[in-house]
Amino acid sequence: MQDQQVGLVMLLVATLIFIYYTIWTFVTPFLDDDSIIQNFFLPRYYAIALPVVALIVGISIVATFVGLVIVKSVQKKKGKKN
């Protein structure tokens, strides 16, 4: 039961992030700069910068994991030959 609750929380967080980002990128450009709603959002520069940084970090983590798996598999093969 606990796994379902964790999954529900993760789904809700992802949904909220999606809604926030969608409003940030598609609605706020059409609002006046002095609008009260603009105070809830970072500058538009970060709408591009944050996903790019997240993508770079994610690709780096995946590449590191794949590299470690390859190194370990090569070491296992060398150990079996001896």
Results as ranks from 00 to 15, higher is better:
residue 55 L to P: 00
residue 10 M to Q: 08
residue 46 Y to L: 09
residue 73 S to L: 14
residue 73 S to P: 04
residue 74 V to K: 08
residue 17 I to G: 05
residue 66 V to H: 08
residue 9 V to N: 05
residue 67 G to T: 04
residue 43 P to L: 04
residue 43 P to C: 04
residue 28 T to W: 01
residue 11 L to I: 04
residue 74 V to Q: 12
residue 32 D to C: 04
residue 47 A to F: 04
residue 67 G to D: 06
residue 56 I to K: 07
residue 29 P to C: 01
residue 29 P to D: 00
residue 65 F to L: 15
residue 63 A to R: 11
residue 12 L to Y: 09
residue 72 K to G: 04
residue 37 I to P: 01
residue 12 L to P: 02
residue 75 Q to L: 11
residue 70 I to L: 12
residue 20 Y to C: 02
residue 19 I to K: 06
residue 39 N to K: 12
residue 57 V to S: 03
residue 71 V to S: 15
residue 47 A to S: 13
residue 82 N to C: 09
residue 49 A to N: 04
residue 42 L to Y: 14
residue 56 I to L: 13
residue 52 V to A: 07
residue 6 V to S: 05
residue 42 L to H: 11
residue 82 N to G: 09
residue 23 I to A: 11
residue 41 F to G: 00
residue 44 R to Y: 04
residue 53 V to P: 00
residue 51 P to E: 02
residue 72 K to L: 13
residue 12 L to F: 14
residue 28 T to E: 00
residue 79 G to H: 11
residue 72 K to V: 11
residue 43 P to M: 05
residue 40 F to K: 05
residue 45 Y to P: 00
residue 5 Q to R: 14
residue 65 F to A: 15
residue 22 T to W: 12
residue 45 Y to T: 14
residue 79 G to I: 11
residue 54 A to S: 07
residue 73 S to V: 09
residue 72 K to M: 13
residue 25 T to D: 03
residue 77 K to Y: 13
residue 56 I to G: 06
residue 78 K to I: 11
residue 75 Q to Y: 07
residue 60 S to V: 03
residue 61 I to H: 06
residue 52 V to M: 09
residue 50 L to G: 00
residue 78 K to V: 07
residue 7 G to H: 00
residue 11 L to H: 06
residue 48 I to T: 11
residue 39 N to H: 11
residue 6 V to D: 05
residue 67 G to M: 09
residue 55 L to V: 06
residue 66 V to A: 14
residue 11 L to N: 05
residue 8 L to P: 00
residue 14 A to S: 14
residue 58 G to W: 05
residue 27 V to S: 01
residue 79 G to N: 13
residue 1 M to L: 12
residue 28 T to M: 04
residue 57 V to I: 14
residue 61 I to K: 09
residue 28 T to D: 00
residue 58 G to C: 07
residue 52 V to R: 05
residue 63 A to K: 05
residue 13 V to D: 01
